[in-house]
Design a protein around this nucleic acid. Structure first.
Lengths: 220, 220
DNA sequence: GATCAAAGATTGTCGAACAATCTGGAGGAT
DNA sequence: ATCCTCCAGATTGTTCGACAATCTTTGATC
């Protein structure tokens, strides 16, 4: 019963899953790249069945897509995908934040991410830290289904951000200020305000990403 | 390109997945039952790796739970689970219905399920038809992520219903009347009303299920 | 240049094997 | 009698190799 993170069955596929996930989110595997089972197996020194398992999980996460008898590929998301993902995220995260506000306490991990965002240099990329903040915030309320759905959506969002060469129009400090407002509302127990601020925050992020997407698309 | 349902990789694990799923939802595998890879493989005449894959998908669906090096088991859901699942479903389905109302059209498959519910005998179990109606309604709007999340939640909900010996306090006709009101609002393009009615409908279902759960629990 | 067939690549599934880990029971110590 | 230890069985975790099914690409033919 010493176990902390049970459920994450088996370390090998889990490690592979994480490695591939990072590769996709860091754009080391650009959209359209074929991810074949044997290549992954060879590259990481595991059996094909193990590689297959990791790939299958990525497909479940929405970070890879696969048709029968074809290699899995990194999907390239269009404006419709971005809009859908952010719409879903708004719905889920808003509900989670409202529930969190009813409890009134901020999880420590979220606070850490918040302070980290406040501390970094204005030019550092911060998408990862921002995502961590939101994940931890949602994880702080007790509804496990909301946490799971939110995690899936955040994965796809990080992939969007990696694919769009999003120029930073907002600094980390400006983002953190919005986060601060949400935190304040949560601590104050004002679920409605916290939810509204969360909605605005997410819609703003969506609009900036869509604008960057259009710019990218126009350039080519 | 003749393919209709691509994505559902490989027929064998898919069939196994469906078979096990049905067994769980029909309570043929009561909560607590251990589902071992070799037993499934032997029972269905497939290799263990294939059975393993199907089981893993069920775990992903939330219809089975598994700790490392232990057999997967059918989870028995408690009142907290029921509350969480229905809270999540309300949030997701409401958003989907509001979006559907903005389009204003009812998917044909949902209409079929609706009429089926109107036609059946008052004593017939109708949980499956009811679930189909809601699934098809959500599938009628274009956000694929909402459809996926809703599908996961509906699977868990069907499992809840199977586990609780829910005495039917409402007849199919009464349920169908609530559905009709939602459909009317959707056709009228009144997203707000459709959303509100959906929320009430789902909360009502949750309350009846929780009451039945308490009754069950008291009996033993 | 278009069409069709063969070759190659990739997934889908199987079977066997062994290590790692968990569970439950037998037997011994207190 | 109760608790502990240890062993045996059960189950998963992972590997390897093999072959069929299917998709893609190449090449030959017309």
């Amino acid at each position: 019963m010493t176990n902390a993170a049970l459920d994450e069955a088996s370390v090998l596929p889990e490690a592979l899953h994480a490695a591939l996930r990072d590769a996709i989110l860091e754009r080391a595997l650009p959209p359209g790249t074929a991810v074949t089972e044997s290549a992954v197996a060879l590259r990481h020194g595991v059996a094909r069945s193990t590689a297959r398992l990791a790939i299958e999980r990525l497909v479940g996460d929405g970070l890879l897509r696969r048709a029968p008898h074809q290699a899995a590929r990194v999907p390239s998301l269009d404006a419709g995908d971005i809009a859908d993902i952010y719409e879903s995220r708004e719905v889920v995260e808003r509900a989670a934040i409202e529930r969190l506000a009813r409890s009134g306490s901020i999880p420590a991990a979220a606070l850490r991410a918040h302070r980290e965002l406040l501390a970094i240099d204005p030019d550092t990329p911060f998408a990862r830290i921002d995502a961590t903040f939101h994940r931890e915030l949602v994880a702080g309320q007790p509804n496990a289904r909301l946490v799971r759905m939110h995690g899936l959506l955040m994965g796809e969002i990080e992939m969007c951000i990696a694919q769009v060469q999003a120029e930073r129009v907002l600094t980390p400090a400006e983002i953190a200020a919005q986060h601060q407002a949400i935190l304040d509302a949560v601590v104050a127990g004002d679920a409605d305000l916290a939810g509204r601020l969360t909605g605005e925050h997410i819609r703003g992020a969506r609009d900036r990403l869509l604008a960057a997407y259009d710019r990218d698309r126009a350039r080519q």
